[in-house]
Every structure is written in structure tokens, then in C-alpha cells.
Amino acid sequence: MSQADTVMTAVAPYEPKKRRVRIDRIISIAVIAPSIIAIAIFVYFFIGASAYISVIDWNQSNYTNKFVGLQNYQQLFSTFRFQQDLRNTLFFTIAFLVVCLAIGLLLAILLDQKVKGEAIFRNIFMFPLAISFIVTGVAWRWLLSPGTAGDPHGVDQLFNLDPLTWTWFSNADSGIFSVALAAVWQMSGYVMAMYIAGLRAIPDEIREAARVDGATEWQVFRSIIFPLLQPITLSAVIILGHISLKIFDLVFAMSGHGPAFGTDVPALNMFDTIAANEYSSGAAIAMILLILVSILIIPYLIFNFRNEVKQ
């Protein structure tokens, strides 16, 4: 667990020696079996059940199970709301990832410069990680509430901005970026922590050697440090990416779906869809979310798993 760039660490194979070991081996399987069964049911079986629900016509409160194929998906993609959801998810993910990585890297490098009060800065940048998206949503809802013409609220008041121009999450086109701003506030410290761990893992000797060879500070960063930080960037992209795809609570607490669904996301749409008794349509949204997340996660898990086997 010392390395941020991998979720798995090598395990030394253990060679059994005694007869006693055989009994212990059975015990060991018995110990882990309930967990495996629970996960088989609660993860894999339930995913299968959701997939099944998404291809039947259970779109009213009483259960029906007529097979309708991909009709629920077709219907979903034809709605303006879901099209907006996909657009918003894309914008949100890009903005959230890029800004988090940039801020995280910048702060990590700055804090690595042996600054005074480094621990205090670090703790300030990271405390939002400890609190709930709901709390973040409540706070930022008031901060980014534009107020009315002539009576600006929130940051518009603080920076003397016109609430009709700076409408933040009330803007149908760009509202989603305001939600991303709150998400960046909460999560950028995480990326910073990852990069700090990465930077500290790079031995000083490597940098010193390069400096002795006459490399400028920028060249040291470009040709030595950045390449070494690449696996961390990958992990950060995967982890932040899967959070952003399934984001729900922050939007729920902060802006709701917004005008013309400018801040709507698939998870919120699913919540409303189920509330209208459309279980099959809701399951279809869930399956699309799962597919999006899996595209990101499965290669990552396989990649890590292969690496481990090689070691």
C-alpha cells in the first residue's frame, strides 16, 4: 500500500510443508467463502438482475416482465434529458479531471519545495476529502447562488460580479462547470496527496545527478520527474474518472437537474425515473453507467493484475 500507482502489491507465494497445512487451507477457504458468496450475490447476481430489468417492460408500479429487448435504451437515448446527461457527464468529467490534475500537481510540486508551514497547507488543501458531498453541495449552493438582479449573492457579491452574467449553476449551457468547481474543491487534495507520495518516492540522488550533469530545473522536471509520475496520473484519472461518471449526491444537494437539465447527470435522472415508477428505464440508465465505469476500470484492473503476476 505504499505505492499509489498500484492497487495491488506482490504477494510472495507460500510453500506448504506440513500435513496440518491441508486442514488450515480448508479453514482459510471457509473463512473467505462467505465474503466471496456475498459479493457474488450482491455484485454479480444483482448486476445481472438489473440487466434483466432493463430489457423488460416494468415501467409502471406493478411488476410485469414482458421482454422488450433494447426498447428502454432506445427510448432513453431519444429523450432530450438523457442526451443532456451524456453531454454533462462528458463536460463534467473532462473539466473535473483536468483541473484536479493541474491543481493537484501544482500544489504537490509547490509543497515539495521545502516551504514553511508545509503541514498546515497540506491539511488545509485536503480537509474537504473528509466531508460528505452533501455538505459540499449545501455550502457551494449558497456560494454559487447568483441572487437576483441588483441583489447579488454568494461569490457574485464578494467579487462584485453581475448576477445576470455570472449565473453559475443556473446557466443552462455552462451550469455543469459550476458543479465541477465544487467537485474540484472537494477532490483536488486527493490528487495532490497522490503526487506528493510520488514525488517523495523519487530519490533525491536522481535529481542531484541530473543537476550535476548541467540540467536546468525545468529539464529535471520534464525528463525525470514527470515520466516517473505518469503511473500516478493514470491512477488519478481512473479513480477520479469513475467518481465523476457516477456522481449523484453533489448534484442532488447543490443544483438538482437545473434549467434545461443543464446540470443533470445520469444518476439523478435514474432517481427521478424510478420515482415515476419506471423501473426498467431506470435500470437501463444504471446499466449505461455501469458500462461507462467498466470501460475505465476493467482494463485498469487487468493491467494491475498482469503486472502483479509478472512480478
Partner: peptide, 23 residues
Amino acid sequence: ANIIFPLILYGMFIPYQAILIPL
């Protein structure tokens, strides 16, 4: 174990919406 472990780990990344209705 080498197959089961990643399968367990997948469970921490899934969007919980995907299991919500059956759950």
C-alpha cells in the same frame, strides 16, 4: 485466488445504481 481477487475488487468501483433496484 488470482482470478477471484480482481473480481472482488471490481465490486468497489461499480456504480451502486447498477445494483440498487435488486438490492
